[in-house]
Design a protein around this nucleic acid. Structure first.
Lengths: 164, 164
DNA sequence: TATTGTTATACTCTATAACTATA
DNA sequence: TATAGTTATAGAGTATAACAATA
């Protein structure tokens, strides 16, 4: 156990005199490098930031996009069904839908079969909007390709297919 | 545009009579399937939950582990340096360190070179504790291997190496 | 003037619990 | 009694802004 670390340290140009004053790129991550979770978290943050930036003109965030997409592909679903499918808390989905309903993208229709539940549908406006969101999301996806490479992106999707 | 979706739908045993009442596994994800971000997010949630569960006996969460690991490998770092390296807001790091300092794992030492900044060190107790955390984190990492396979985990680390 | 650590505020997200109206 | 949707609360986590001490 030494007191000064940074294993490979090239000991760069020092600004003042004594003590570390290490630049960010000189700092070793140690055990973190071997953890899939760390890399995955950093990557996920990058992806979400790019998604938000790419869809900023339409003000749609990843979770909102996932809700719209699932409702679009499965009209008539209940809130519980959407929440379960996407791993969102049903309490949280209420607020997400409030916002999407205010924006006239989604409507809640009282189910006749079970009067406790709502059947979720896109509005006509929601359908056309979603088509645009999908085009922008595809653009975001190309940014991912540019970042890690086309082949790597596909390998990644294969490896993680079980988690969708 | 049909009103009932779920493309491949095997049309399972229905409970009552009319309308969807679709099971979670019958719900199609549509465009989401092609998005790396969606798979990565779901995987990251799974990883963090397993990490938290595996380290629950020592009550250490992923971010706390990353802070301890970086300080352990680079004693004397300032808070700014740690925050930058890990991509944590410096305001947030303050609270993280407050908690780790209360638990006697970390100490802040006033720097003589720059009296604005604190040099961060593990306590003796922090050193031994971190060794245990690392053993548990390695156990968690084996859970990841069990989940996606040893080769896939390594491929993943290679693909995402640039994000550490 | 700029930077370090700090405090504070706001908004997102997760995790619960409890309430209501139905079933 | 159980479930769907709702409301409310508490804790992480992210994003800012502002302040004091120091550079």
């Amino acid at each position: 156990m030494t007191t000064t670390a940074t294993r490979t340290s090239p000991r760069k140009r020092k600004s003042n005199g004594l003590r570390p004053q290490i630049d960010a790129d000189e700092i070793g991550l140690d055990a973190l490098v071997g953890h899939a979770g760390y890399a995955v978290r950093r990557f996920q943050i990058w992806i979400f930031q790019d998604f938000i930036r790419t869809l900023s003109e339409v003000d749609i965030r990843p979770t909102q996009y996932s809700v719209l997409t699932v409702i679009g592909a499965n009209p008539g679903l209940s809130q519980m069904a959407v929440a379960k499918r996407l791993g969102i808390e049903r309490a949280r989905l209420v607020h997400l839908l409030d916002s999407l309903e205010q924006r006239k993208l989604v409507k809640r229709i009282k189910s006749k079969a079970d009067r406790r539940s709502h059947a979720l549908h896109l509005t006509a406006q929601g359908e056309t909007a979603l088509a645009k969101f999908k085009r922008l999301a595809a653009e975001h996806e190309r940014h991912v390709e540019d970042k890690i490479g086309k082949a790597n992106r596909e390998r990644l999707l294969q490896i993680l297919a079980g988690f969708s």
